[in-house]
């Protein structure tokens, strides 16, 4: 199994072509096994706790615009992943235009989200500090608005999405679009490195998207998913999972 694919460039010199798509299967199988193991562990071994009630007073968690951002981002990431891997796994779909348009959508919503988070939201609530790292090991410590896992997921996704966007836009500059024609490529090795980074980031994004979806669907986390749809969690869910002193309501 290869990690990196190499090809001869126009002058016969070996250059990087991109990440090996063998890794796609490695990522898929590994993610599946880990998540399955987690599911089994949770089902068989983890301490069963009563689920907090969704009834009662509702606590606002996400503004509508943020929820919209999330789902647009989720949609564009899923479209990007599907259109990106379809030709690799042999699904015939006219993917390229959808892919880069989805990429642009993702880029715009990320810019929007960044600006909004910086200036209109409690940006600090998502910051991951040293104290957060005690949280997984001490059941008595409850998080503020976002748990350690959520912050970790957020920042992992942030890094991966930024990497995918940055490399994707670089690659976008190398294809025909309504705004520009593709240029000559002087250095195929550099182009290959961009493809390598884009592919590697994509593999990471696939893995973390799978993890994200898995946890979003887990019974004990499903109320977060609901909050991302409806905007609220119940007071019981809040008290069970969060430290209200740390969660500054917007």
């Amino acid at each position: 199994m290869d990690i990196i694919r190499y090809r001869k460039d126009v002058w016969g010199e070996e250059v990087i072509l991109g990440v090996s798509w063998d890794l796609l299967w490695v990522i898929a199988v590994t993610a599946f096994l880990l998540l399955a193991a987690h599911a089994i562990f949770m089902a068989a071994l983890a301490k069963k706790k009563a689920m907090p009630s969704a009834e009662g007073k509702r606590v606002h968690r996400h503004d509508a615009i943020d929820r919209a951002f999330h789902w647009i981002m989720a949609g564009s990431v899923l479209v990007l992943i599907f259109t990106g891997i379809a030709p690799i796994i042999g699904i015939r779909v006219s993917w390229l235009n959808i892919h880069w348009i989805a990429g642009l959508v993702l880029s715009f919503v990320c810019i929007f989200h960044t600006i909004r988070a910086l200036f209109w939201q409690d940006f600090k609530s998502m910051l991951l500090g040293p104290a957060d790292f005690k949280e997984p090991f001490d059941e008595s410590i409850k998080p503020g608005k976002y748990s350690f896992e959520q912050k970790g997921m957020h920042w992992a996704m942030t890094v991966l999405v930024v990497a995918v966007i940055a490399t994707g836009i670089t690659l976008l500059l190398h294809i025909d679009t309504p705004w520009w024609d593709r240029p000559s490529v002087d250095d195929e090795g550099t182009l290959g490195i961009w493809f390598l980074l884009h592919g590697t980031a994509t593999l990471g994004l696939i893995a973390f998207t799978a993890i994200h979806i898995y946890f979003a669907l887990r019974p004990e986390k499903r109320f977060y998913t609901r909050s991302m749809v409806k905007g609220w969690i119940s007071e019981d869910e809040l008290k069970e999972n969060h430290d209200t002193n740390k969660w500054k309501q917007d």
Binding site: R7, K8, D9, V10, L17, G18, S94, L96, N97, H174, D176, D181, R182, P183, S184, V185, E188, L191, G192, F195
Partner: peptide, 28 residues
């Protein structure tokens, strides 16, 4: 090793590519 051969680029579709015989429709 162009796109069609599994590579990363097209040599014909560039500002200086020799593309007299190439496509005028539906290039991807």
């Amino acid at each position: 090793n162009c796109y069609r051969a599994g590579g990363n680029l097209c040599y014909a579709d560039t500002p200086e590519g020799m593309n007299r015989e190439h496509a005028i429709f539906n290039a991807s």
